[in-house]
Nucleic acid binder design. Sequence first.
DNA 1: CTCGATCCCTGGACGC
DNA 2: TGCGTCCAGGGATCGA
Length: 307
Amino acid sequence: MPELPEVETVARGLQRSVAGRRIIRVSLGETDFIDDPAVLERELPGRNILGVERYGKFLLLRLGAGPVPSSARVPDAALLVHLGMTGTLRPQAAEEPARKHTHVVLLLDDGRELRYVDPRRFGRMAYLAGAMLQRELERFGADPLETPIDDFVKRILARRARIKALLLDQSVVRGVGNIYADETLWRAQIHPAQLGSRLDKAELGKLYRVLQQVLRKAITLHGSSISDFLDADGMPGEYQRHHRVYGREGKPCFRCGMAIQRVIVAGRSSHYCPRCQKRPRGTGTALRNLPERQAASEARKSKRTPK
DNA sequence: CTCGATCCCTGGACGC
DNA sequence: TGCGTCCAGGGATCGA
């Protein structure tokens, strides 16, 4: 579940530990999560890692020219790495035995290996350069920590989906995932199924501020370690101790004591307080996934799934 | 445009 | 102890 704060944590760690290093050799294991494995093997050896940045939920390893003539004009190039649910990217001593599910190993010029390990292979890796890289990055929306409030508001109001879906939509804002969406909505006291376009100015302002607060606080605590997230130094994050709703179904709301509920909104489990986050008063789709309706939906589902 | 459903994948939780 | 089953989740894709 690496989201923006976790990816930021990893990016900072890698910036410290591998920026400036040169990639000597590439070894691949399973490659079904790599856009084009052959391109990695061809393009990475000899390239310098200029720096490591976060871009939404992606790590961006900026790559230098490598062994091409210095007269040649080299387009911007980068290795994009999405950690999916269970991915880790860490430099390790070459002597250290490779863990199971190690799929990409980049041998560095100092003898260490930058290893990508991902049991579920929900991640993604791609080498992109020039216009291809540009086009790929443009698919994504605004960085929630960088974009001004007017732009944030404009992006929400331009759509008619539920606010939870909009926060998760990487083309609206990049980097927010299920945990931080739920935590933000609880703190902003907005129901996840509320239509984004129905939020008033005050609610949108609060949402914007709370989202930034939550993400910034999580970054300072090195993210949330739910199951196995570790930063680039192998250390767990601490933000999970600040979770108010995520993973707290049935437990009392920190604000009012009511039991936290979990429903499916936008296809994702969504945790919220039914008292603090008032249900949408609107019509139509906004009401579809409320708990009382979900019971009926569950019943229907199990009926037509015999075995 | 937005929705739900489905697939991908493995490990961990759970029931028996 | 050892099965089987379910579930988690981001993102791509497809049909409604």
